[in-house]
Design a protein around this nucleic acid. Structure first.
Length: 232
DNA sequence: AACCAGGACGTGA
DNA sequence: TCACGTCATGGT
């Protein structure tokens, strides 16, 4: 059985640096085959560079919940046009205007509340890096969103687990399909040296692999994303 | 034209 | 605890 680290090396060799987290305020291109658009900055780990970019990433993690990235990007561009990628200005924005702006990202009723709730929290932070539990205590922020914020916005080397991670590593025999989030997270953090850049790349590579694997007909063996379809 | 996407929450058993 | 329904737009 391949180790966690060996799989990372395979993914990195296959797909290259991913340039996460994408920023609408950055005009870099995305050289990878799947995914979309602009904002990726492969090999450049100096982002986020401003407090506004930190906030933008946090908004993106919420808007990205169970949502394809191009739709998140549309929502972020709308918010940017309204000049509300800023906690104070976002909080003072009319609720219905906010909903309309983020509509492309789906779940706009819930996400409007989530964004405002987080904006209030972000304001109270005053530049401090939040604890994981503080984020989890906010309504609308679950483990993956909290870890994504910490890893990509606040540069805390914590591992992000998503549905793909669970499926891939269950297929590989590293975990049980129904292992809970914290268990899988511990598996990665206990078998890898704590490295911000590698953690950022690893999660991004898993997502990239998932996007690639999903669209090709003959999937990548044990690294497959899709569950076996019933052959009826 | 179902199916799913870079999840989280509320509910009832 | 845990399995299941709900939230919603837009790609393929």
């Amino acid at each position: 059985m391949k180790t966690i680290k060996e799989i990372y090396d395979l993914f990195l060799k296959q797909y290259g640096p991913q340039g996460w987290w994408p920023l609408i305020s950055h005009k870099g291109s995305n050289p990878t085959k799947s995914g979309s658009i602009n904002g990726y900055h492969p090999g450049d780990y100096t982002f986020p560079r401003t407090r506004e970019q930190v906030f933008e990433i946090c908004l993106g993690t919420i808007l990205g919940q169970n949502t394809a990235w191009p739709n998140v990007e549309k929502a972020l561009l709308n918010l940017n046009k309204l000049d509300v990628i800023d906690p104070k200005r976002l909080l003072s924005l009319d609720e219905d205007v906010l909903k309309d702006a983020i509509r492309p990202a789906g779940y706009f009723n819930q996400k409007a509340k989530k964004l405002k709730g987080f904006a209030k929290f972000f304001l109270h932070l005053r530049g401090r890096i939040p604890k994981r539990q503080e984020l989890l205590d906010i309504w609308g922020i679950g483990p993956e969103t909290a870890d994504s914020m910490l890893l990509y916005a606040f540069k805390v080397p914590t591992f992000v687990i998503d549905a793909y991670t669970r499926r891939i590593f269950a297929n590989l025999g590293h975990i049980d399909e129904k292992a809970d989030y914290e268990h899988i997270k511990a598996l990665f953090e206990n078998n890898l040296k704590s490295d911000l850049i590698m953690f950022q790349e690893y999660h991004a590579l898993i997502v990239e692999h998932a996007k690639t694997d999903r669209k090709i007909k003959s999937h990548s063996g044990d690294l497959r994303i899709r569950n076996r379809r019933k052959t009826s």
